[in-house]
Every structure is written in C-alpha cells, then in structure tokens.
Amino acid sequence: MNNAKINKAKDKAFQMWGIFCTFLGLVLLAVFIGAIIKDGILRIDWQFLTSLPSRKPENAGILTAMMGSLWILGLTAIVAIPLGIGAAIYLEEYSKKSRFASLLEINISNLAGVPSIIYGLLGLEIFVRLLKFGPSVLAGSFTLSLLILPIIIVATREAIKAVPKTIKEASFAMGATKWQTMWNQILPASFGGILTGVILALSRAVGETAPLIVIGALAYVPFTPSSPMDEFSVLPIQIFNWVSRPQHGFVINAAAAIIILLLVTFTMNAIAVYFRNKWQKKVNW
C-alpha cells in the first residue's frame, strides 16, 4: 500500500470512529431509558400518581412531589423570566461600554459556571435563614430563579442580537424612544429565541435536585403545598430518596418517577427546539 492509500484508509477509519462516538452517547442513553422503562412502566398507575409518600413502596405515590415540582416551576417562572429578560435588555441596549458593563458581562459568565449546589448554600443562608422563609416553596423558587437567571440572560441577549440593526435604526428614525423600540420591534422579533431560552432554563429548574436538598426540601411531605410558604418536595428529590433505599420496591418506584420526570423535561426540550426552528425560519429578513 502506498502513502496516499494509507492516508485514505486512516481518513475512512476516523469517519467510522466519528459516527461511533456520535451515536455512543445517544445509544447508551437509549439503553438506560429502556432499562428504566422496563423497570418502572408497570408501576405507573392511578394509585402511583395520586398517592402520598409512604413507608411501604406499594402504597407510595408521587402526588406531593409532582405538585411540589409544579409549584416550583410556576413560581420560578414568575420570578426568573421578567428578571432575566429585563437584565438582558439592559445589558444589550442600555448599558454603555463602561467598566461596569464589562463587570456585568464577566459576572454573568461566571455565575453560569457556579455549581448548582453553591446556589443551594446561598439560598439556605439568605432565603431560608436571613429572610426567614424556611424550607418553603418560595425559598426554593428564589434559589432556582437565581440559578437559571444566567441561562435566560444569555439566551435573551443572543435573540436580541439576532434582530437586524436596520429595524432598530428605522424605529429610532421614526422618533421612537428606546423602550418603544424595544417593546414594539425588538422583543416581538426576538420572541421565539427568548421563548426557547426560557423553556430550556425552566426545564433545567425542574430537574434540579442538589440546591433544593441543601435549602432543606424534604423527601417526606405528607401534604401538597397550598401556599408559597409551605414545605415541599419535588420529583427529583423523591427519586433520590427512593434510589437511596435498600428495598427493591422503592427502586421500582424511582424508575417509575424517572419516567414521569423525563417525560416532562423531554417535552419541554422538544417544545423549545420546535420554537427555535420555527423562529430561525422566520428570521430571514
């Protein structure tokens, strides 16, 4: 074999390796999910969805955890979406090129890399203890809001940046103020991108476990939250609790709860991807 042929063969070999790697993670994920479905699918029934936690695996259910997750999702959305979009608008359109602006920039990049468990420690000291919220839905939502804020900010800024400058100029030239331009032109034009980022961020919040454990969310809560000051559990914590128990029945329960959790996060991701594609098609100015 001559040199060129060897090179050609290496090239082909790498191509095969590339395809193998690309599908390796996905295939493993599929295998994992398959194993979980096999373990847990039969456990999902009406009783499982509507029962409170219990010491006996066959009586236990995910009602409180599911309601807790819904509460957390809703409150986090209410807090984080306006804050995140507001901060992004400020950074993109209002802050001048100053030291403070670059400080904000590096700060957000840093926050995005802070481990989620550290946000838990922050929430524990500030929301649970200092502001005396206790290990409540409110404290959990505030903690997760701070956690997903950088994700929303980054996504919103990207979406705003993608709006052509000519639109902004045209609006200013018509005598519109900054906010009128933002509200009437830039936000509607970047809506799809912002929505994508927001959904992805919220899906992250739904799957978070560690910061909520740190602020003191419990695995065993015998009631569903009825106000933001109530104690709560969430699906991931319930799963964690069941995984760490020795009885096989609880492992089955964990698998069943994982199926529900994955259903939620995958649906949210699918919706996000759908909006992103739809929006990208529209953006051909």
């Binding site: 052509p164 100029e169 609006s171 030239a173 519109a176």
Partner: peptide, 25 residues
C-alpha cells in the same frame, strides 16, 4: 424623517408599518 439605503420595513403588516409613527406618539 429618514429613509435608509436598504429598504427596512418592520416585520409587520403594511398598515402597521405606516401607522407605527402615529402609534408611538
């Protein structure tokens, strides 16, 4: 008023484009 080099209508209807200046007032 100003007219730009490249036509830059807003991604809205014809009517809303022309009415924009009035509405923001």
């Amino acid at each position: 008023g100003m007219v730009f080099q490249k036509p830059n209508p807003f991604p809205k209807s014809i009517f809303d484009n022309v009415a924009y200046g009035l509405r923001i007032q």
